[in-house]
């Protein structure tokens, strides 16, 4: 990518125009279209996030030889939607293992954890544990991002949108693509 922009810079001053265009794309756009099926959309978004995220500190996060462990922490409000969707849908081209947990210790093998509203009490510990072990944290609860959850979904103008705690994500060793960042609300 760097070479790509390098070529642009070297070729002609006209590329400045393109670079300017490129910079403009970093300006976040909060408008996310609303899904008809909110739960399905939330679960689908989880898979889409992983396309733009890598973890350098946790090798298992990108280990294609193993399945992708997606844990649900707290009370299940999605019914069996997780199992249904991830029965066929893969994450990072890996089979997805769904597990519902309510203890921090159980997050040991998790690659990504969805924290329910009910786990607000353990949130800080979960975040700390996740950052320590390179586990991507997601949620659909207002204010969770400010408390350290990496990606938090929220509804605005009847459209599902998401916010990213970039500092916390960096703590957890995650690299998030600018494409995803450009679509998210960044929580400092």
């Amino acid at each position: 990518m760097y070479n790509y922009f390098q070529n642009i810079a070297n070729n002609n001053c006209n590329y400045l125009v393109i670079i300017a265009f490129f910079l403009l794309l970093f300006i976040p756009n909060h408008a996310i279209s609303q899904e008809s099926d909110e739960s399905t959309l939330v679960i689908a978004y989880l898979e889409r996030f992983t396309r733009f995220i890598e973890n350098q500190s946790n090798a298992q996060f990108d280990d294609k030889a193993k399945g992708f462990n997606l844990y649900y922490y707290g009370n299940n409000t999605f019914g069996n939607r997780f199992e249904e969707i991830f029965a066929t849908q893969k994450i990072k081209n890996r089979k997805v293992n769904i597990r519902f947990v309510d203890k921090i210790e159980e997050l040991k093998d998790a690659h990504m954890v969805f924290i329910a509203k009910s786990a607000e009490r353990d949130l800080d510990k979960i975040v700390e544990y996740a950052n320590k072990n390179g586990i991507l944290t997601t949620s659909y609860s207002n204010g969770f991002a400010k408390r350290g959850v990496h990606i938090n979904l929220y509804m605005q103008d009847l459209k599902l949108k998401f916010e990213i705690n970039h500092i916390s994500a960096k703590k957890g060793g995650f690299n998030i693509s600018h494409l995803l960042l450009s679509k998210a609300r960044i929580i400092e």
């Binding site: 794309l25 756009n29 996310i32 279209s33 978004y45 889409r48 733009f52 494409l179 450009s182």
Partner: peptide, 14 residues
């Protein structure tokens, strides 16, 4: 490239 996430998240406004 910038249209990737727009298309992914069906973001017409984007």
């Amino acid at each position: 490239e910038f249209l990737v996430t727009t298309l992914l998240f069906n973001d017409y406004e984007g």
